[in-house]
Amino acid sequence: MSSREAQPHSREWYARLAKELGGYRHPWQRSLDGPDPELVFDALLLEYLTPDTRVLEAGCGHGPDATRFAPQCARWVGYDRQPELLELAQRNAPQAEFYLWDGKGPAPSEMQGPFDLIVSRRGPTSVIHHLSKVAAPSGRFLYVGPRLEVPNVPASLHRVGWTIAGEWRVSIQAYAPTLEDWRLRCEFMGEETRQDDWQHHATGRGMPYREERYVVLAKLGNYDE
């Protein structure tokens, strides 16, 4: 059975991505007409990293951000609900800490903060409900999602008393080069795939679509606090 035969974003599906792709990666090929839209998230993350920064990463996957950024901060703690991905993360980023948690119920005792920066790259938004317990008083929350709007993020932040300091919406022209890539992309995004769409809209570069990202930076309280 391949990852395509499991329900997308189920535990089995993530386990098979870990096995077949070596981590939580997009299973389709693509080409972009501009810079990767997640570079906004990267730039903001780097802006807040210092040798003293303590970071909590929600949905760390196989640890690509921990591998890249943990050496630049005092502490990097990641959690994920998928043990297969955590096993990869621990191998990829031995300088970071990783814990098994699904964001529900109390956090593992070893994962206690406070944290100066809480980040989620296309990961769970349930961490927002725990910000009051894990964030330092001057902490920041940084999130990037796969569409131009992720309505539950602003609403959830408002409910826990956090204010959006900045929002960025990035849309880049992209192409899925083959019908199989297009099918995999639609499956990943929970969108329907119709073969006649490919026949009518595919170009020499493949199926055109927009690669979108919604980036949010938030802090506790009002703007002037």
Rank of each mutant, 00 (worst) to 15 (best):
P151T: 08
A155W: 10
E97G: 02
G190Y: 07
Q90K: 15
G78D: 04
P177A: 09
Y223E: 13
G204M: 04
T163Y: 14
R54I: 06
D197R: 14
P51G: 03
R75H: 08
R16P: 00
P137N: 11
R121G: 04
R183E: 10
W168G: 01
E110I: 01
L46Q: 14
A176N: 13
G63H: 06
H200N: 15
R121Q: 14
P64H: 09
G221E: 07
E84F: 05
S132R: 15
Q29G: 13
P137W: 12
S3V: 00
R75P: 01
V160W: 11
R210Y: 08
A96M: 03
T203I: 03
E38F: 11
G78S: 05
R205T: 00
Q95M: 10
I164T: 05
L100F: 01
T53C: 10
P8R: 10
S120A: 12
G103I: 01
Q90T: 04
L148Q: 10
D42A: 13
T163F: 13
G105F: 06
Q90D: 04
P51Y: 10
P114M: 11
R54G: 07
R4C: 00
Q82I: 09
A58Y: 10
Q95P: 00
L46I: 07
I118W: 11
A155N: 08
E191T: 05
R205E: 03
A66R: 05
R159C: 01
A6Q: 12
P8E: 04
A43W: 11
G78L: 05
Q195Y: 09
G166F: 00
V144M: 08
F41V: 02
H200K: 14
L32N: 09
G139F: 06
E192C: 02
A93P: 01
P108D: 07
R68V: 02
Y223S: 14
K133M: 14
S138D: 15
S120T: 09
L86V: 02
H200S: 13
S109E: 15
I118V: 15
R183W: 09
H130G: 06
K104M: 02
A135E: 06
G206M: 01
Y223A: 15
G166C: 01
E225G: 11
Q7R: 15
E97H: 13
P64C: 05
D224E: 09
R147D: 11
S10C: 03
S126Y: 07
R75D: 07
S171K: 13
D65H: 14
H9F: 11
E97I: 05
I172A: 10
E84I: 04
R159D: 11
R147W: 12
A66G: 09
S109F: 14
G221F: 09
G22A: 05
P64M: 06
R30T: 05
R183N: 09
G161S: 07
N152V: 08
D65F: 07
V40L: 10
P8V: 03
P114V: 05
L44S: 07
A174R: 06
L56E: 06
